[in-house]
Amino acid sequence: MTEPMAWPGAPSRVAGTQSQSTGANLADILERVLDKGVVIAGDIKINLLDIELLTIKLRLLVASVDKAKEMGIDWWEHDPTLSSGARRGDLAEENERLRDRIRALEAGERPTLAPSGRTEAERDGPSAPRSGAVAETEEDAR
């Protein structure tokens, strides 16, 4: 047995492994107290789906997620800046966009360059608000 272990509320530091300093970060706390721990239905019932929605909201830090979901907009699920699991999908999406563009060019269309740098053909595509555009803008800004 080693000496008794302390259990402070804040994360302890191991030299060289942590760039953040004081206090447990909110994301670390929330992913535990909201998502983990014993779940027992108390007398006051809280809808887990509300909490799930809340965590999505936290990822976005916007107020209008309910509305966005109602409208079927769920691009954050595929946005690499918001969900790392989608990062691979980013490339696939770009490939898809490029293929679309090649098809358009082969069909003899002349896509004109829109002010945003994207082509009219792309902007008029069927799945209009594409996540890739948002992600690219943010990444390029870095």
Binding site: W7, P8, G9, V33, L34, V39, I40, G42, D43, I44
Partner: peptide
């Protein structure tokens, strides 16, 4: 919630309940 749970754990094993378990 987290502060109470981790303070308790300084002395004994603790089983944390999820946030907002209310009776």
């Amino acid at each position: 919630h987290h502060t109470v749970v981790s303070d308790m754990a300084a002395h004994r094993p603790v089983l944390p309940l999820r946030l907002a378990t209310i009776y």
